[in-house]
Amino acid sequence: MTTATIAGSQVELNDEGFFEDPEQWTEDMVPELAANEDIHELDDKHWQVIRFMRQEYFANGTGPTVRALGKTSGVSVKELYQLFPKGPAKIAARIAGIPKPKGCI
């Protein structure tokens, strides 16, 4: 576990860079968290996915996998990979301040 300063606030991250406590996350951290993932311009679709990740996490206890995102977030699998080329569910979870989504498919 490491402590990082994001948008002026101290947050705890696990070894893979996911938030230990999703409650420490605030929306103003998103641009900096995204930049850490090589995403320097955030459009509405990015935000849609990030907010959806959090909503699903708080409803189900885990964030959605790419397949679940593609089916339910309103953003297609193809678009998801354009928005988050290094793995949509994994990267969006990091930016959304939630743990890595569980699931094989």
């Binding site: 790419v66 569910a89 094989c104 498919i105």
Partner: peptide, 11 residues
């Protein structure tokens, strides 16, 4: 298929 999909999910 699961291995391929999982690999892409990891980037």
């Amino acid at each position: 298929l699961i291995m391929a999909n999982g690999a892409r999910a990891e980037g």
